[in-house]
Design a protein around this nucleic acid. Structure first.
Lengths: 221, 221, 221, 221
DNA sequence: CATGAATGAGATTTCATTCAT
DNA sequence: AATGAATGAAATCTCATTCAT
């Protein structure tokens, strides 16, 4: 049974000003290297030995902090899901026209995904390697995220700000498919900055949602 | 070196007497079961033993027809890429307004992807397991596919049928991201038929490309 | 990467408490059994499974200490080469007439080879199974050994103690051919003791090198 | 059961002027390629597939002419042993002083070995791969060869032409060790021709056998 | 907290040989 | 006389995990 800090399942203690280590605490380093290696080689091909070598610790240390290799992956997921959920909640909770909030959220998730491209790449390809139970957890969390985003879409459709011609859940899957795929083509040395790509993606989404002029708005009858 | 039929790298001979048979030839059965298992468990987790057991042959037989487990994966890729390229070439080569051709191609790739969902799922998650050389081949083929699609977009932008406000390559990555992700959420028992989903996706794309009324068409000066 | 003790490429730690034990440490036992089996059946025919069974450990343990089956072979070579080089250096470094030093070295290498007949047999037949890189290393080491022996021959030729009618390198290859072949015919229950055989071999060499009375010595002009 | 030509165990029919084949009959080509590959990679590492590919035939053809892979090796041995035995018998049967016959035989076996270096290399390293029964046959044949050579040595010793200070069988093992090892160091582009090497080797042998002046000849009482 | 030796199960691949045609 | 699909056994090697220290 691996050590757990009280009050959560995060195994990562707040690095106590990191005395004696240029790189952060042991579990933090393990997570960082695991993230890098899972993204680079895939979960199955990255061996525990490689991960601990990269983190400069031994296997015993890893099994002290994490229950298993699966656990490493699960915690990587947990962290990124928490991060994205937090950001979306902030944006969704702001005031202002729904179209602006959707634009901001859509652009932000692109920038955040690019900033954590390894996490995105792992999420894309490695979720099936999790145990069934962990997969359910992750899926549930992601569903909550999608639900929140979807509620913004339906809000806009109800107001007539967005077309109602396409089901909101289809719109959400459509958009997050695009976002998740960033990791397969984005290159840091590319022509466009993450912010520019975020702008283009958000604009494509908003334009796709523009109400058709021929289609009567919901309140103008 | 595994057996190869002349005239191509397909290891699948035309099943001589068993046309329509529920079984098919040995290499055909191997490819079918491999596709199913790679999609279900991922490339690394599906063992050669499982595949040959499912196909009802021995490992020796598999290695008679395929060079390696990698080769199995590569041939699955090759088949689906060929299939999709063929369909896109047909549609792109038709006459008619560019918007209609893009709509048709966009809707068709959704339907085709859903019809070969296992292949899509493999393409999404398992390309990184291929050898570097095979990856280059596959990428090159996919690039040709994307290029053809992109040329339709730029054609429409030049005509003023599509907005020029978003780079065509961004549009292509945006759309195919959505398409590739179908395999993560589509369920055969879902509310919408593949054709309906294709229609929605194509409409989202076309609406996103609708020229902004405020932005002047390229030829109306 | 297999465990290596510091300061050398020997994987054999000094058995901590078991000095003189009939068993020895795990890597030591593995090397001993591997030597026996490689000599008996040849490198390719001796399976890792047989070796670890004979040593009473599991395959995992073997791969903990050695990088590969090749590595096992390479370490066996390294040990015997070191041993023979050390002995030759001692003898060559002594004072006394060169003919006596050559006689002693020639007789000693026979006795040492017979005492390590398994190693000799492996060296004879299995070097080609090593990786190209390891082969180069081994060859380089053996060349150094031959060079030292050759330098004794040329020294004798320069002094007129040995005939100059045959090139020294031919003499070396000639003699070590004979020595390496001991493993194909020597039997422990044979008529002659290792020392007697060493004596005969050394005498044959020395007699072959005797200056021809008709050929003038280098200094007697 | 493989085809056998009457009157011997040679599977090689006299090539009937080789119509339609630039390379000789099928079994001949198989033996030639097998010899080359066994010498190059060792018996175990040369696969039957490689051999038949190199010979331009299929496995079925090989198993038509040879009982097994072992049989290939055995026939390679048989051929070279027959060849060397024939030459030695010719030389031994000549008239003339025994020292001259030994010199000629010793030089000839060097030249012949170099001319068939692949065979020599196989003989050196691959005999242990033969079945026990085949090994016995080969050993018996080689013993007959050694016996004949040894009888020349003892003849010379009885005459006082050679020293009697070293047992004749030791002399034979000593010399053939050197000869068998030619394959490990001889290079076609070396400084010395095969004949020169043969001369040096034969001279070394003869000089080693020169009677010691101090030791009384057997007949001079 | 951390080590590292050891396990045991399972992975891919090779290969000599057979046999129906 | 020859083919080539198929077998089945064995090969080397990897790896997540445990446990005594």
């Amino acid at each position: 049974m691996a050590v757990r800090t009280r009050g959560g399942d995060a195994a990562v203690p707040p690095a106590p000003s990191a005395i004696g280590s240029a790189e952060g605490s042991v579990p933090r380093r393990l997570l960082a290297e695991a993230t890098r290696l899972f993204a680079e080689k895939g979960f199955d091909r990255a061996s525990v030995q490689e991960i601990v070598d990269a983190a400069g610790v031994t296997k015993g240390a890893m099994y002290h902090y994490f229950d298993s290799k699966d656990d490493l992956l699960a915690q990587i997921y947990a962290r990124v899901l928490r991060l994205q959920m937090t950001r979306l909640e902030e944006i969704a909770g702001q005031g202002g026209p729904v179209a602006e909030r959707v634009y901001e959220a859509a652009a932000d998730v692109v920038v955040t995904t690019i900033a954590n491209l390894d996490d995105a790449s792992i999420a894309l390809r490695s979720m099936h390697q999790l145990s069934a139970a962990k997969q359910r957890e992750v899926r549930a969390e992601r569903r909550r995220y999608h639900e929140l985003f979807r509620s913004l879409i339906t809000e806009g459709q109800a107001e007539g700000a967005f077309t109602a011609g396409v089901p909101a859940d289809i719109v959400v899957d459509f958009y997050f498919g695009s976002v998740h795929h960033l990791s397969t083509w984005y290159r840091a040395d590319g022509r466009l900055s993450p912010e520019e790509i975020g702008g283009h993606y958000a604009r494509l989404l908003l334009d796709a949602l523009r109400p058709d002029p021929r289609e009567p708005g919901p309140l103008r009858g």
